[in-house]
Simulated assay, not measured.
Amino acid sequence: MKKELRVSAYAVCVRDEQVLLARWVAGDGTRRWTLPGGGMDHGEEPVDTVVREVEEETGYRAEPTALLGVDTIRRGWLRRLGAPGDFQGLGIVYEARITGGELRHETGGSTDLAAWHPLDAVPALPRVALVDVGLDLWRERPPVGRSRLTDPSIT
């Protein structure tokens, strides 16, 4: 069984009761909102990853201000030749503030829109679970950096 690990870094950017999100386009064309961020390049520092990814996906320059926590997902999948695979995604979640740039949409990437959304409107958005996990980490600031949404032992 092939095993794959993908390490990513994401930003929770909140200002004026709004959160900055990027709309992710899945391989099947499905579109859902996510936190700006993405995969870490080999040799890259996670904090540099989140700065680069926020700018690529939103046009903004961001400064990470706090490490909020870590999110992990695990999925089984079928490889091209039909053999099973085991995927684990490890997401490092930072709080960040916008320091410059202008809002724009990414072209030729994994997202197609970037926008500020009122925090109270997020539950109605089509979104990936990472949005909820990131906002939970931002609100709760758990000491070990693990969201109650992903850890059933935390109530």
Score class of each variant (00 low, 15 high):
G91Q: 01
T107I: 05
L81T: 10
D41N: 13
E53R: 10
R32G: 11
G59R: 03
G101T: 03
P36Y: 06
G91F: 06
P36E: 06
T30D: 13
T107A: 08
V47L: 14
A9P: 06
P152I: 02
T58L: 07
D71E: 10
M1P: 13
C13N: 06
I154P: 01
D132Y: 08
P143F: 00
A129V: 09
G82F: 11
S110E: 10
L78C: 06
R6S: 13
E4F: 03
T107C: 08
R127P: 11
D16I: 03
W33S: 14
W138N: 03
V51W: 04
P123V: 09
V50D: 07
P46N: 03
V93S: 01
E45G: 03
D136H: 09
V131S: 12
A9H: 04
D71F: 04
I98L: 14
L125N: 09
E17N: 06
P46K: 04
P64Q: 09
I154C: 01
Q18A: 13
V93C: 01
P123R: 09
R75S: 13
G39Q: 12
D151M: 01
D41R: 15
G39R: 12
L81D: 15
W24H: 15
R23W: 03
L130W: 03
R15P: 07
F87H: 13
L119S: 02
V144M: 01
A115S: 15
A129G: 12
G82E: 04
E56Q: 13
R31L: 03
R74H: 13
V128P: 05
P64C: 11
T30E: 14
M40W: 00
S110H: 08
P142Q: 06
G43C: 08
R148I: 06
V122G: 04
M1A: 11
T65I: 13
G38S: 00
Y60Q: 11
H105G: 10
R139F: 03
L113K: 14
P143I: 00
G27E: 11
P123G: 05
V133H: 03
P36R: 04
A115K: 12
A114S: 10
D86V: 00
V51M: 10
A115G: 15
D132F: 08
R127L: 11
Q18L: 05
A62W: 00
E53N: 14
R139Y: 04
D16M: 02
L113R: 15
T99V: 15
G91T: 05
E17M: 00
G109I: 06
D71S: 15
G85V: 02
